[in-house]
């Protein structure tokens, strides 16, 4: 009677040992993998996600790495990250300097996505926010040297809204203008056509993840001119109009012509009157 019991005990013991070994090994592996996964969350700044990705974390929970977006991209812009690349394995991204997003109107990549990792609610490609173009190197950008280039401005699919040209004075020559491209985050989709087209060896304008490219004003800041516009009137007691003590007939145009003297008409008054006025 005791013999079979011993056997059962032994086999039960062996079974439990096996189970705990397997569980222990798996748990150890899990810890390592969990730590690695946190690192893989950081998308390198050169890798840009397809349109319809708002948040990298949400994207990584939804993307099954099937590559259907890659297949339906008509310009071969998108690719799946391979083992050895720095982007979360198997997920779609593109490198704007190589092939930028052409911003197809029907957004085939988003339509192809079977999981909704690329947000199907994105129907107007102008609303895409893949990243934000930043004129990152003002030392290299030839516009800052006073040369005419504006290639980034001219290739921009949302020209004049996403990139405008700001003319400023060229201090170096003293007589020319600088034609400075300025990116506006309100309209930039991050398609990367500007980065792709930049004529420099290494682009001076680059698309970066919005998180990296954007600053943020403290929430307690209020800009007086905006608040004034919102309220329709000044929110502080308006300044009373300044009264100038000026000689008769003289006006003062603030921020305009300055002191305006009455027109000099030599024939309608006598010389002695004029001398008395003291206004020679």
């Amino acid at each position: 009677m005791s013999n079979p019991t011993n056997k059962t005990l032994q086999s039960r013991r062996r079974f439990l040992e096996n189970i705990s070994r397997a569980a222990g090994g798996a748990a150890l592996f899990g810890i390592g993998l969990g730590l690695y996964s946190q690192q893989s969350k950081s998308l390198p700044s050169t890798a840009i996600r397809p349109p319809g990705v708002d948040n990298e974390g949400d994207f990584l929970s939804a993307c099954v790495r099937c590559g259907l977006c890659v297949r339906d991209c008509p310009y071969d812009t998108l690719k799946l990250s391979k083992l050895g690349e720095n982007v979360a394995l198997g997920t779609p991204y593109f490198d704007a300097r190589k092939i930028p997003c052409e911003m197809c109107e029907d957004i085939p990549c988003v339509k192809a996505c079977p999981t909704g990792a690329l947000d199907p609610e994105l129907t107007n490609i102008d609303d895409a926010r893949m990243g934000l173009a930043v004129l990152i190197d003002q030392e290299a950008c030839i516009a800052f040297q006073g040369l005419r280039c504006e290639v980034c401005y001219n290739v921009c699919p949302v020209r004049d809204k996403a990139i405008s040209i700001n003319r400023t004075h060229n201090i170096r020559t003293g007589k020319h203008a600088l034609f400075i491209p300025v990116v506006h985050s309100s309209d930039c989709t991050g398609c990367g056509k500007c980065e792709h087209a930049c004529i420099l060896e290494e682009a001076a304008i680059k698309v970066l993840p919005a998180k990296l490219a954007k600053g943020e004003l403290g929430r307690h800041y209020r800009l007086s001119w905006e608040e004034k516009e919102k309220a329709g009137k000044s929110l502080v007691t308006p300044d009373i109009e300044h009264k100038y003590n000026l000689p008769e007939g003289t006006r003062y145009d603030f921020e305009g012509e300055g002191l305006i003297q009455p027109e000099f008409t030599p024939f309608n008054e006598s010389a002695i009157d004029r001398l008395n006025k003291g206004n020679l």
Binding site: I19, R21, A22, G25, A26, Y36, Q38, S61, C63, R65
Partner: peptide
């Protein structure tokens, strides 16, 4: 043990819910 695979199966699912990512697919 051949049970190791079930351990890894559990790990893959637990990690997915803890991190909110398809961790095993990495």
């Amino acid at each position: 043990s051949r049970m190791g695979r079930y351990g890894l199966l559990a790990v893959s699912l637990v990690l997915a819910s803890v991190t909110g990512m398809l961790v095993w697919e990495l």
